[in-house]
Design a protein around this nucleic acid. Structure first.
Lengths: 215, 215
DNA sequence: ATTTTTTAAATTGTATACAAAATGAAAAGT
DNA sequence: ACTTTTCATTTTGTATACAATTTAAAAAAT
């Protein structure tokens, strides 16, 4: 096993980036992280490599890594990709979705109604909703790519109050989506999902550009 | 800098996977790699983490990594993703493509005609052709995702003689693509590219399933 | 004043060494 | 014969220590 502590370290660092405890654009020193998380530099290095490959960190200068700054452009790219990939996965999944799975999805949707969710909780539930529906697709490569995109997107969600009015529309789109899936209307479900992601992306990108968070 | 030797090690390992010097499905031991490449286990670990995140290696059992086996399913996923993402990037790029860039692309296309190319050389040229056209899009996030997909695909290209008849059709599609780009016909260029990738993917997947390389 | 060069501090890269865990084979039990 | 348990071996995980590189700050030169 990648050793429970190493896995924890990975999750912890990611969460700290999500919660802006590690600020975007800040350069991370291995020694610093080492003392911060109470481990030596080797497990830190392992995690840094992974997070760099996943897009959480980027190279800073000749050596050194920094927390990938949030930009409207990256947000747009991430949503554009999700918009094109998630319907594909859903298409594979639908033929294998059983009533039981739909029930589970509905449950998660219910939990998503709560207004008392942190950004991570919201992101986590949202991902559970999608995985719940898509795990039966049995497409590990596609799934892991999409999972990574989702995670990176969650950095942007909950950046400010922005998500409040977004949640309203999202909920009704999710319900439409569930209905189409139940009726095995693949094309229709894919279109709904595509538009759903496009909407969310547009709201986000507009917000980010309006707040001139660099382009 | 990620130290020239570490970067070399990364490239070397990738190439050895491409050339089947490290066999698909084989479990890699850190110590073994350490002696094989003449470095200690630390740089090996760094590279393993990265290759795992990029999809070259996967977890094997509780600990240990193995060379991700080639499957028709993965190939299909990779091509499906490229099919949906590359036209998007091309769309961003076309408005910024100048005559000079088109000339460079044509040069690369010329080199691609050669029948005396190894699988990697072919893959490298193919990527140069696409990057050459798409770098002006100025979309780093999208580009790096696509780059990774390309690299993973190159494991499948040149798996056998299969690519011979593929190359013929690819060449003419590339020419059509160039023409559409020159005339700034964004939609048309995107459609050509999408179909081009779909074709290549279909040929590959059919070949792989026919040769019953697990599904 | 501005640029270049030098130089010292900080930081990463790597090796060695040891601890913890996992693997696999032998032994014991059923 | 087959399963379970035990135990030795292998392999990974981590810490410490040192070398090489990079950074940036001070000094020198234009």
């Amino acid at each position: 096993m990648p050793s429970q502590t190493a896995e924890n370290l990975y999750q912890q660092l990611k969460q700290d980036i999500l919660e802006h405890k590690l600020l975007q654009g800040s350069v991370l020193k291995q020694e610093e992280l080492s003392t911060r998380y109470g481990v030596s530099r080797i497990p830190i290095r392992d995690v840094l490599q992974r997070l760099k490959a996943e897009g959480w960190l980027i190279q800073s200068g000749k050596c050194g890594v920094m927390v990938n700054p949030l930009t409207a452009k990256e947000a747009e790219d991430l949503y554009m990709m999700r918009m094109r990939l998630e319907p594909l996965l859903l298409g594979y999944a639908i033929p294998h979705i059983k009533h039981k799975t739909l029930g589970e999805a509905a449950d998660i949707l219910e939990q998503l109604k709560s207004k008392e969710l942190t950004a991570q909780q919201h992101g986590e539930l949202n991902w559970q909703f999608h995985t719940c529906l898509c795990q039966v697709a049995n497409r590990p490569t596609l799934l892991s790519t999409i999972h990574n995109l989702h995670q990176l997107c969650s950095r942007y969600i909950g950046f400010h109050a922005m998500q409040l009015n977004y949640l309203e529309t999202a909920q009704s789109e999710h319900i439409d989506l569930m209905a189409a899936i139940k009726n095995k209307q693949v094309k229709k479900a894919q279109t709904i999902l595509e538009k759903h992601i496009a909407n969310a992306g547009k709201i986000l990108v507009d917000y980010l550009t309006a707040n001139t968070l660099s382009s």
